[in-house]
């Protein structure tokens, strides 16, 4: 039962926060606010899906924010300057990002290097590469872009479920299935439990590590596409520091930074939690937007303390139940 506790607490805190917001601003109950919550946090959510895989496997990926930045610049240049059709540009950038992630994963495994260092290097590399492409903010005027931003499902009550919002929901859905219902997902948890044991049980640790970081970078590329659609521009300084927001969302969602434990639904709640705080501040109008960071910081701190406490509790209960289950 302790496995589900962090997620349950996250859900409870989110429900409580939403209730408080709704009491103060009844508009929070409208589909418009809910739809905007999804649209505005789409790129963060897509990153967080990849980060959930990485963290559950016992790693970390600091490069995702830079990959988003690189993707937006690359797309703007490809579409506006080089004249590549948007869809082809999307494919190309996803390919490059996936290769980038697979390389990081291979380095982590091949040279037994800490993921922190390798992805930190990847972060500088991707950010540097985007500056190399352009230091300007480049607007994207392709017809596809305006078509995508115009298209939306009308929800009852005036809400507009945008394409980027739908992409995020789809990614969460697919990510949840891959993590919880496939062999690959089980192996991700296994890696987070113990790399040595996983290897001894006949799982190819190296291939899986490469695949996990490739997936994270692929989703970072997809997130970059979403960000590019959302802002209709490319800028090398976009999404600076977003990797940390992503990690915060995953941890607030109840995933242990030490790996091996976590749920996709928790990450979804973690992303919405950050969005909720942001929306509240927008509604209030008098608060500085930096309060988002402060509240996120406090929440993060509280959740990590809570996780440590439940872990300690779980360990004690294991020790107490040494004879459990050995019924002849």
């Amino acid at each position: 039962m302790t496995r589900y506790l962090p997620v349950i607490v996250t859900a409870a805190v989110f429900a409580l926060g939403y209730a408080i917001c709704a009491l103060q601003f009844p508009a929070f109950l409208s589909t418009r606010v809910i739809a905007n919550l999804l649209t505005d946090n789409a790129f963060l959510g897509i990153l967080a899906v990849g980060m959930t895989f990485v963290i559950i496997s016992g790693g970390i990926d600091l490069s995702v924010g830079s990959v988003v930045g690189f993707t937006t610049v690359f797309l703007a240049l490809a579409i506006e300057t080089w004249g590549i059709p948007p869809l082809a540009a999307f494919m190309l950038v996803l390919f490059v990002a996936t290769l980038f992630g697979a390389t990081m994963g291979a380095l982590i495994q091949g040279f037994d290097m800490p993921p922190f260092i390798v992805t930190l290097a990847g972060m500088f590399l991707a950010r540097g590469a985007s500056f190399l492409l352009s230091t300007e903010s480049i607007p994207v005027t392709a017809p596809l872009y305006s078509a995508v931003s115009d298209f939306a499902f009308r929800l009852p009550g005036g809400g507009r479920l945008s394409v980027v919002g739908m992409v995020m929901l789809a990614v969460f859905f697919a990510g949840g299935i891959a993590l919880h219902l496939t062999r690959f997902g089980a192996n991700v948890y296994a890696l987070g439990g113990s790399r040595v044991s996983t290897g001894l049980m006949g799982i190819t640790v190296g291939r899986h590590t490469a695949a996990i970081y490739a997936l994270s970078s692929f989703l970072a590329g997809l997130s970059g596409i979403v960000f590019s659609l959302y802002t209709s521009s490319g800028y090398s300084l976009s999404a600076v520091g977003v990797e940390l927001d992503t990690i915060a969302a995953v941890v607030i969602g109840g995933t242990l930074l030490t790996g091996g434990h976590g749920f996709m639904i928790g990450t979804f709640l973690g992303v919405l939690m950050q969005g909720l705080i942001q929306t509240y501040i927008n509604f209030d109008g008098t608060l500085s937007s930096w309060w988002t960071k402060i509240v996120t910081g406090v929440l993060l701190f509280a959740f990590i303390a809570f996780q440590q406490a439940t872990l300690a509790l779980a360990r004690r209960s294991v020790r107490g139940a040494t004879a459990k289950g050995a019924t002849p």
């Binding site: 496939t182 089980a186 192996n187 296994a190 439990g193 049980m201 434990h261």
Partner: peptide, 27 residues
Amino acid sequence: VNLLPNLTVAQNLFLGRQPTRFGLVRE
């Protein structure tokens, strides 16, 4: 014990050779 304490007993028994249908583990 070279198993994975964070996975369920069933997953530990069948890791890497889980019964699947359409790519999904038949839990």
